[in-house]
C-alpha cells in the first residue's frame, strides 16, 4: 500500500530481534556480592566474587556496563571455532554451518559491551563478520535459484537476524510467484511443487523424500 501509517508493527525490527536474543543465557564472573534476583523472567544469583553464574544476556551487559563482572564468551566465539566455521562455510556452496540462532545479535552485544572479555577480540569480530557475509551471499544465491513454483521454502539453518533480513523480500517475492503461478495451466505444476530447500545443511533429511 502506498500510504502507510508507520511503523508497521507486524514486522520485526532489528532491535526487536536483538531484544529476543537478550534473553539467551550467558556465563558471567561477578566481582561483587549481590543477593539473588527474583525477576519476572526467572531467578538468578546469588552473586559472589569469582564464582561464575548464568544470567540472561541483558543482565550480563547491565552488570558489565557498571563494571560489576566479566562476561565469558560462549564456546563458539573463539578464533579456532570460528575459523573452522568460516572455512566450512566457504567450502560449501549451499550448506550453512550450525551456529546459535542468535549468533549475530550475541556477537554484536558482546563486541559493543564486553570487548575486553573476548580473547583475540579483533580476530573474532572480523571472523564473525566474514561468516555473516559469506552466509548472506549464500542466502542470496539460493534465493536467486528459486524456480518460482514452490509452495513452501525451507530455510533450516538460517539465524534469527538472517531470517529477518531476507523476510520482507522473500515473503513478497514468494507471494508474487504464487499469484503468477496460479495463472498457468495446472498440468506441469505437479513435479515441482515440493518444498524447495534454501539450504541443504543436513544430509539425508527427509524433506524431499517420497518422490
Amino acid at each position: 500500500m502506498a500510504v502507510q501509517s508507520e511503523p508497521d508493527y507486524s514486522l520485526f525490527t532489528a532491535q526487536e530481534i536483538e531484544f529476543v536474543a537478550e534473553d539467551e543465557l550467558i556465563e558471567i564472573v561477578p566481582n561483587m556480592r549481590m543477593d539473588p534476583l527474583n525477576l519476572i523472567c526467572g531467578d538468578f544469583g546469588p552473586f559472589l566474587p569469582q564464582i561464575a553464574a548464568q544470567v540472561p544476556l541483558w543482565l550480563a551487559v547491565a552488570l558489565k556496563k557498571r563494571g560489576k563482572c566479566t562476561i565469558r564468551p560462549p564456546e563458539w566465539m573463539s578464533v579456532e571455532k570460528l575459523t573452522h566455521v568460516l572455512e566450512a562455510e566457504r567450502d560449501s556452496e549451499r550448506e550453512f554451518q550450525s551456529l546459535p540462532f542468535h549468533y549475530v545479535e550475541i556477537s554484536r552485544l558482546l563486541f559493543d559491551h564486553a570487548r575486553d572479555d573476548i580473547p583475540d577480540g579483533y580476530m573474532v569480530r572480523s571472523l564473525t563478520e566474514d561468516i555473516r557475509d559469506v552466509r548472506f551471499h549464500k542466502v542470496q544465491s539460493s534465493l536467486e535459484s528459486f524456480d518460482g513454483r514452490t509452495s513452501a521454502v525451507q530455510i533450516k539453518s538460517l539465524s534469527a537476524m538472517e531470517v529477518n533480513i531476507v523476510r520482507p523480500f522473500v515473503a513478497r517475492a514468494l507471494q508474487s510467484f504464487q499469484k503468477l503461478d496460479s495463472l498457468l495451466p495446472d498440468t506441469d505444476s505437479m513435479p515441482n511443487n515440493q518444498p524447495q530447500q534454501a539450504d541443504k545443511a543436513a544430509k539425508g533429511r527427509r524433506v524431499l523424500r517420497g518422490r
Binding site: M1, A2, V3, Q4, S5, E6
Partner: peptide, 8 residues
C-alpha cells in the same frame, strides 16, 4: 488511507 496516517 488518510485516516490511517491520521491515526498514527
Amino acid at each position: 488511507n488518510r485516516a490511517e496516517v491520521i491515526r498514527s
